[in-house]
Computed example of a mutant assay.
Amino acid sequence: MLTRLIGERVSKTTVSHLHSTSSPSNHFPDMQALSTAPFMQQVQYGMELSFLLENPESESNVQLKESLKVQLSHSDGIRGFMVAYLSGRGEDVVEGNVDALVAPNTIEIPPVLLEVLHEQLQQKGSAELVSLMCMNVIMPTAMVTMHKDASQSANSARTAQRGLALLQAVQEHNTGIRKNVSAIRQVARRVQKIDQDGHTAETESDDPLIKRWTEFFDKWGYQQQQAADIEKAMDTLLS
């Protein structure tokens, strides 16, 4: 079974193996490698930085911040870090359901990570980061009901809630986040109105964000149940 996260199909076994074989380390990844390494190596680096985020030392905060800025400055780095951070160790969500996802958020985001994300989201060219952070909520939310295994559904719910907490914490720092979230909610509502013959009374939109997220929903085969759950998550962000 595959975990779908931020546009990348990553074997759940592979991610679990990386987590189980990774030894906690206080050593920072090489900056050049953080800039250029391929996706799966970025997942490994993301796990190392996630450990340092959870076990901070005041004297290393400057280096941790610089390392995060480098990794979150390019596509493979963003995806690698998010896979590691959002699917990492911990039991933030116990129940594998969307009701747990939209409950009042109690997940604490490391201050250093928030600081870096705030800076990155205010940079030109932050559209990819915004898009991937939205996917971090959409994809695991949909997988809660697409999975047939209860433990996998629970893992997806936990990942989705972490992604939601992260997006909720930074959404005021980039106007594009709210625009994307609003478009995603509109698409989710439209999918729920599609009848058994694949027809809907709603007209096609010319909005490029609506078109983009419609294609995304179609690509991953989201049906009415997944769309309803995604709408709930978007409502949480827009409330």
Score class of each variant (00 low, 15 high):
residue 87 S to R: 15
residue 70 V to L: 09
residue 33 A to W: 02
residue 92 D to L: 14
residue 58 S to H: 15
residue 110 P to F: 05
residue 51 F to P: 01
residue 25 S to F: 14
residue 106 T to L: 08
residue 82 M to A: 07
residue 77 G to I: 05
residue 94 V to T: 15
residue 49 L to E: 00
residue 97 N to C: 13
residue 84 A to C: 11
residue 27 H to M: 12
residue 47 M to N: 13
residue 60 S to W: 02
residue 62 V to T: 06
residue 59 E to T: 12
residue 36 T to G: 08
residue 118 H to E: 08
residue 80 G to C: 06
residue 118 H to C: 14
residue 105 N to F: 09
residue 29 P to T: 07
residue 27 H to F: 14
residue 117 L to A: 06
residue 49 L to K: 11
residue 114 L to R: 08
residue 75 S to F: 02
residue 80 G to E: 00
residue 85 Y to C: 00
residue 52 L to H: 09
residue 52 L to M: 15
residue 36 T to S: 02
residue 110 P to K: 08
residue 117 L to H: 11
residue 89 R to Y: 15
residue 115 E to R: 04
residue 116 V to F: 08
residue 84 A to E: 13
residue 22 S to T: 14
residue 49 L to V: 01
residue 55 N to K: 13
residue 113 L to W: 06
residue 34 L to E: 07
residue 44 Q to A: 13
residue 116 V to T: 11
residue 37 A to F: 02
residue 83 V to N: 06
residue 50 S to K: 11
residue 78 I to N: 07
residue 20 S to G: 04
residue 59 E to V: 05
residue 81 F to N: 10
residue 76 D to T: 14
residue 66 E to G: 03
residue 112 V to M: 11
residue 95 E to V: 13
residue 74 H to A: 11
residue 78 I to A: 10
residue 111 P to D: 04
residue 65 K to E: 09
residue 46 G to L: 05
residue 64 L to C: 02
residue 74 H to G: 04
residue 86 L to P: 08
residue 47 M to F: 15
residue 56 P to C: 12
residue 56 P to G: 04
residue 40 M to H: 06
residue 58 S to W: 08
residue 56 P to F: 14
residue 82 M to V: 13
residue 99 D to A: 13
residue 68 L to P: 00
residue 67 S to T: 07
residue 105 N to I: 03
residue 118 H to R: 14
residue 106 T to Q: 09
residue 113 L to S: 08
residue 96 G to K: 12
residue 45 Y to L: 00
residue 47 M to S: 10
residue 32 Q to N: 11
residue 51 F to C: 05
residue 78 I to E: 00
residue 114 L to F: 10
residue 71 Q to I: 03
residue 98 V to E: 01
residue 37 A to I: 08
residue 24 P to A: 09
residue 42 Q to A: 04
residue 29 P to Y: 08
residue 39 F to R: 10
residue 79 R to V: 10
residue 96 G to M: 09
residue 89 R to Q: 13
residue 32 Q to I: 05
residue 68 L to I: 08
residue 28 F to Y: 14
residue 81 F to W: 15
residue 108 E to K: 15
residue 51 F to T: 11
residue 54 E to T: 04
residue 56 P to E: 04
residue 109 I to K: 12
residue 36 T to A: 08
residue 46 G to F: 05
residue 21 T to E: 03
residue 33 A to L: 06
residue 79 R to E: 06
residue 55 N to G: 10
residue 73 S to A: 15
residue 103 A to W: 09
residue 42 Q to P: 01
residue 85 Y to G: 02
residue 71 Q to S: 09
residue 92 D to T: 03
residue 60 S to M: 00
residue 26 N to S: 12
residue 71 Q to Y: 01
residue 80 G to V: 12
residue 21 T to H: 15
residue 103 A to K: 14
residue 108 E to M: 13
residue 96 G to E: 06
residue 73 S to H: 07
residue 83 V to G: 01
residue 116 V to W: 03
residue 67 S to R: 05
